[in-house]
Simulated assay, not measured.
Amino acid sequence: MSANILIIDDDKTISTMMRRGLTYEGYDVKVADSGKEGLHCVLDKEPDLIVLDIMMPGIDGLEVCRRLRKDGGIPILMVTGKDSIADRVQGLETGADDYLVKPFAFEELVARIKALLRRSENRKKDDERLAYSDLTLDLATRQAIRGERVIEFSTTEFNLLAFFMTHPQKVLTRELIMERVWGFDFLGESNVLEVYVGYLRNKLEGQGKSRLIHTVRGAGYALRE
């Protein structure tokens, strides 16, 4: 599936050149000729990457970048005719992922875009995994890997382990765990948490592996080495 790219640039000559070239490269491209229009385009449909000019009337590229960074992590490639070190630093500190000075070779634009999209895809893959010590939990396949051993879980076991792994080393009270994993209105057996912690320990500690889920007496449980 081709990536969606939004170009925000008031220079129609340059934006038309980029749109034609990137469309030829196989990308789905949309153009906005002002910062305000660009922000509306993002709200309408979030792109996979934004090519953003700095020097625009009204809402300039730096302000667009600031606003976008408050709400998300869309890769942003800034393009501008300002090439001083201070200008580059300002652009990157505002939240841009990369900075390209006009005039630029189209091949370099494509190379920068491909690099940013790869980086973004790797971040998304990382976000689908939780890791602690030698334990990795894959949120997409709902499997755990400890060492080289793949471990299968029931839905409740998986949800409980995922909650521990999103709060490593923190002492989690029994009440908090029950609320987040089983819900406010759970009316099951009072020892259900202890039973499921036992299930997790049996599966995680197979083949002589060390304990990761520890009982903190009088407080709750903690994921720690």
Rank of each mutant, 00 (worst) to 15 (best):
K124P: 05
D127G: 05
L117I: 04
L160E: 09
D138I: 00
E107Q: 09
A162P: 03
F163N: 05
V171A: 14
T215D: 12
T155D: 15
F158D: 05
G206L: 13
K102A: 04
V110T: 10
K209A: 15
A86M: 04
P168N: 06
L172C: 04
W182V: 09
D185N: 14
G206M: 14
I177A: 04
E148N: 12
K209T: 08
G147F: 08
A219I: 06
L160N: 11
E189V: 05
L187A: 10
A96P: 08
R112A: 01
T156G: 00
V150S: 14
F153D: 05
W182C: 00
V89Y: 13
I213K: 10
T136Q: 15
G183R: 05
L187N: 14
K209D: 13
V171P: 08
L160Y: 02
G183H: 06
Y199V: 00
V171G: 08
A162E: 15
L100S: 07
L92D: 02
S84E: 08
K170G: 02
A219V: 09
G147L: 12
A131T: 13
L193C: 04
L193G: 00
G188Q: 06
F163C: 05
R129L: 10
I85H: 13
L176Y: 09
A105D: 11
P168F: 09
E108Y: 09
F184G: 01
M178N: 09
D185V: 04
Y196D: 10
V216Y: 05
L187F: 10
A144S: 13
R112C: 03
S120F: 03
D126M: 15
L116E: 04
A162R: 15
R201V: 06
L109N: 02
I177P: 03
G206W: 01
S154R: 02
R118Q: 07
T94N: 12
A219F: 11
S154H: 06
K102V: 06
N159W: 10
L176T: 06
I213E: 05
D127M: 12
V216W: 07
A144Q: 10
P168T: 07
T166E: 14
L212Q: 13
P103H: 01
L193A: 01
E128M: 13
E175K: 11
S210K: 15
H214Y: 02
T94M: 12
L176D: 05
R211F: 03
A140T: 14
L100G: 02
E152W: 04
L187Y: 08
A115H: 07
K114Y: 02
S120Y: 10
T215P: 01
A115P: 02
I151N: 06
S190I: 07
Y132C: 02
A111E: 05
R201M: 08
V216F: 07
R88M: 14
A140W: 06
H167E: 02
R149Y: 05
F104I: 04
G95E: 11
E189P: 08
D138P: 10
L137E: 10
